[in-house]
Amino acid sequence: MHTFRPTTRFIGQYFRHLAEVGSTSDELLLEADTLPEGAILLADCQNAGRGQNGRVWQAASGQHLTFSLLLKPQFLPASELYSLNMLIALGLVDALSRFSQENLLLKWPNDIFAACRKLGGMLIETNLQGNYVRQAVIGIGLNINESMREKDGLRAISLYDLTGTTHDRYQLLEQIADCLEHRYLTYQQMGAGNLLMEYQRKLLGYQENRTFQITDGAQFKGMIMGVNNAGKLLVRHHDRLRAYAHGEIKMLFEDEIAID
């Protein structure tokens, strides 16, 4: 079996692979003060992993990639933390694109989609003191070797579904470490640059007519015009542009749209 040997400077250089853990992010948070930046904790099975809206991430043991990464982005002002979300998401797309030809898109704010289905997601937790980011723990879950397309009730897909073959998870994680580090160091050295533009270009539904649902249940047609400098989704409805925070708006898929 392939051993885990990332060719990076620091991401993944500290690495631990556990069979089972409550949540890799919780575990990493406990040790964040003593672990080096770039530490990765991989688990075959997380029984309290955090999924969307607090839902527990159900991962078949050893089939997928569920891991957490520790960063200490002390160069990043807290007000620009949304950039971290964007650069990690783009880094994951960079890495997965080395394995699949499929057009991978980002569903605002933090999911990776392929063929209109969810391939993976991420959740970042940070600790701030004033404007200073002490640490950021990035929890990542990617569907890899188990077919997800046929699962009822899940709008999910796996890398196996996209490529027709299984993948060595260590090899995959090495590429992810490489791409994340490249994105991270580029940001650190050059600043945001085209990050927002790149993120928007990959945004699912960007500049397309889509149906949205807001908190009170009302549905309307609109168009995603981008993401603003607070990470809010900009949606144009008739001639009005509004910024929505996470939880205030949901983009609907065909089967979720109410019939008029």
Binding site: L81, Y82, N85, N110, L123, I124, N127, Q129, A230, G231
Partner: peptide
């Protein structure tokens, strides 16, 4: 000092705010 007093969430990024 250093105790978490609240969370500020943006773009599903959860930030624990510690007192200075």
């Amino acid at each position: 000092k250093g105790q978490v007093v609240c969370i500020i969430e943006a773009m599903k990024l959860f930030n624990e705010i510690e007192s200075e």
